[in-house]
């Protein structure tokens, strides 16, 4: 089952793992943006999560605790953003960018002494008997728990946003904070919680880079994944399942272009390496064409101050 030397089963299995950091971070940011907050600091929260997760995992020897540590680190950093934008009503775009700068700096300072260490491994979840099944084995059963967690979170968030009261409140706050406020919801408190959730998810995504994908700590390890996560949220029109599709599409093309290179493709390398970005744009164009609204929460990026 090869196409030009590339095995599609392995390709799919690989992209599912390589998309996890972007997927987790983008899911978190989806919730944040659905609540009307634009946090451009995803990269900063991811890298701090990568470090936090790494340190906890190395100190405790438990990768699971590591992921929790990563989530906590990301959430704590996001609280700075939350305080600035929700309490001090600072501009969200600028604060988010400053958060990235700050997060990169803090992680680099805090990470001194953690270079060249191997963290405890994050193992395959299911037994080999399942993972070795042809075709379905590698795709469905051969992953570590975080891959399943990321898919489960997609489903959970889809359900929460669509069908629960919590989701309704979040969406209300994001569409019209005035109206939500009039209904008696504490807009800024709800947004603060969403921001913290987004921070935790980004932190976990970062931890997946330093604990499973690469496993190691080096300065700036996330290398721009946070920016891609931001783009994926827009790509997905703020809907969880589309976030998954977007992350898999982007991750898939990235993996595919590297595989094509190995297989000796005739397409010049530089076009291959542009492909993930160009194809993402192309797909977005096709998806958005003809539709009036792009699904952005109406109050996205606007701060709210309860005048009474």
């Amino acid at each position: 089952m090869d196409f030009g030397g590339i095995n599609p089963v392995i390709l799919i299995a690989t992209l599912m793992a390589s998309a996890v950091p972007i997927l987790l971070a983008a899911l978190g940011e989806t919730v944040v943006e659905r609540a009307g907050v634009l946090n451009l600091g995803v990269e900063g929260m991811m890298v701090i999560g990568a470090l936090g997760g790494f340190i906890v995992a190395v100190q405790t020897g438990s990768p699971v605790l590591g992921f929790i540590g990563g989530a906590l680190a990301g959430a704590v950093l996001s609280l700075i953003f939350a305080a600035l934008t929700q309490v001090f009503l600072a501009n969200q775009v600028a604060t988010g960018l400053a958060l990235t700068l700050f997060g990169l700096g803090v992680s680099s300072l805090g990470g001194q002494g953690y270079n060249g260490i191997k963290p405890p491994p994050t193992e395959q979840l299911l037994p080999d008997a399942l993972a070795d099944l042809p075709v379905v084995g590698p795709i469905f059963f051969g992953h570590d728990w975080v891959v399943y967690f990321s898919i489960a979170m997609t489903a959970v968030l889809w359900w929460v946003l669509k069908a629960t009261r919590v989701g309704l409140i979040i969406r209300a706050v994001g569409e019209s904070h005035e109206a939500a406020h009039a209904l008696g919801y504490k807009v800024n408190r709800i947004r603060l919680m969403c921001i913290a959730f987004g921070g935790a998810m980004a932190g976990m995504g970062g931890a997946y880079v330093s604990l499973a994908r690469v496993p190691q700590w080096v300065d700036g390890i996330t290398a721009g994944a946070g920016w891609i996560a931001l783009a994926i949220v827009v790509f997905a029109s703020w809907r969880p399942w589309r976030v998954l599709i977007g992350a898999y599409l982007f991750g898939g093309i990235t993996v595919l272009q590297l595989n094509l290179q190995v297989a000796g493709s005739v397409i010049p390398v530089e076009y291959l390496s542009m492909a993930p970005y160009l194809i993402t744009i192309l797909v977005l164009v096709i998806m958005s064409a003809g539709r009036k609204a792009n699904g952005a929460p109406a109050a996205l990026g606007q701060n709210f101050h309860a005048s009474r």
């Binding site: 030397g5 590339i6 095995n7 392995i10 390709l11 690989t14 390589s18 950091p21 880079v209 994908r213 690469v214 190691q216 080096v218 700036g220 390890i221 996330t222 290398a223 721009g224 994944a225 990235t254 993996v255 590297l258 595989n259 290179q261 190995v262 297989a263």
Partner: peptide, 17 residues
């Protein structure tokens, strides 16, 4: 020169083939 996740992907692509 430096993108650990991408380098890992590249290594994986090589190994897969």
């Amino acid at each position: 020169w430096f993108d650990p996740a991408k380098e890992a992907d590249a290594a994986k692509a090589l190994i897969d083939q």
